[in-house]
């Protein structure tokens, strides 16, 4: 699968862009948090597309954002 780039993303309609990012992020986030992946993605999709693209390319930033969101979700659940 080709890497998702800013130019590919920019050629898609706005609502489609989040879908594309979510589809790419899903397997990566599922590998970190299988149970919360769907909720983590719905939360991170609120972030700017440029940052989401960065997360796809940088495991460190992906992990740190996932940790942040998991903390929020668990806090919300508690």
């Amino acid at each position: 699968q080709e890497p998702l780039t800013a130019s590919i993303l920019a050629s898609a309609p706005c609502e489609e862009q989040k879908q594309m990012l979510g589809e790419r992020l899903f397997p990566l986030i599922q590998a970190i948090h299988p149970e919360l992946a769907g909720k983590i993605i719905s939360t991170v999709l609120e972030i700017d597309n440029s940052e989401l693209l960065h997360m796809l390319q940088s495991p460190e930033s992906l992990h740190s954002k996932v940790d942040e969101v998991v903390a929020v979700l668990q806090d919300h659940k508690a």
Partner: peptide
């Protein structure tokens, strides 16, 4: 208490409509 359903879950292949009220 009961489990909270927020936020909605993203599923691959299912069109994502954002976090606005469903």
């Amino acid at each position: 208490g009961s489990s909270i359903n927020w936020p909605p879950e993203f599923h691959p292949g299912v069109p994502w409509k954002g976090l606005q009220n469903i």
